[in-house]
């Protein structure tokens, strides 16, 4: 019941926001005090051009985990409309060029998965605990299974 409704909400959000993963969990403290570890961000992927100040979620070649940081520089090319974007975490001292692939100076449109539009605190802790302490996940699944088996209705 809970699982099905969660799946329905997830798929519904996918349709509404047009982003392949409409929700991300903040995993690092690089955007503190705005976003803390365990907070949830709702993403939106629209055709609107990327502008400075927006908080974007991007993938870097050679890194598995996407990063949530703020755009601080934008250069939009006249002829192609392609954008060069530089990002920085609010809580980091320097910009993100050190995080990008070796020799990469700018992010481009295809690196960006979406921009953050909404915010919900703490809820992401559930997934962080599940992934970092898998024993709790198995205990939970076991307990639920036990309830299903022993219920008499």
């Amino acid at each position: 019941m809970i699982v099905t409704s969660a799946l329905i909400i997830w798929k519904g959000l996918m349709c509404v926001t047009g982003s392949e993963s409409p929700v991300v969990v903040v995993l690092s403290g690089s955007m503190e005090p705005g976003f803390k570890r365990g907070d949830i961000l709702f993403l939106h992927m629209s055709k609107d051009p990327i502008r400075a100040g927006e908080i974007v979620v991007f993938n870097v070649d050679g890194r598995k985990i996407p990063i949530v940081h703020r755009v601080i520089k934008v250069h939009e090319h006249e002829d192609t409309g392609e954008v060069d974007v530089l990002t920085k975490g609010d809580n980091n001292f320097g910009d993100d060029r050190l995080l990008y692939a070796h020799g990469q100076l700018w992010l481009h449109r295809h690196h960006i998965m979406g921009r953050a539009v909404g915010f919900l605190p703490y809820v992401g802790w559930v997934t962080i605990i599940m992934t970092e302490k898998p024993i709790i996940k198995y205990l939970l699944i076991g307990a639920l299974g036990l309830v299903v088996i022993t219920s008499k209705e």
């Binding site: 005090p33 400075a52 601080i72 520089k73 934008v74 090319h77 006249e78 609010d90």
Partner: peptide, 17 residues
Amino acid sequence: TPQNSLNQVSLWDGIIP
């Protein structure tokens, strides 16, 4: 600029608590 239809360069920022 002639090549870029828009350039945005952040110069200063701050967090107001």
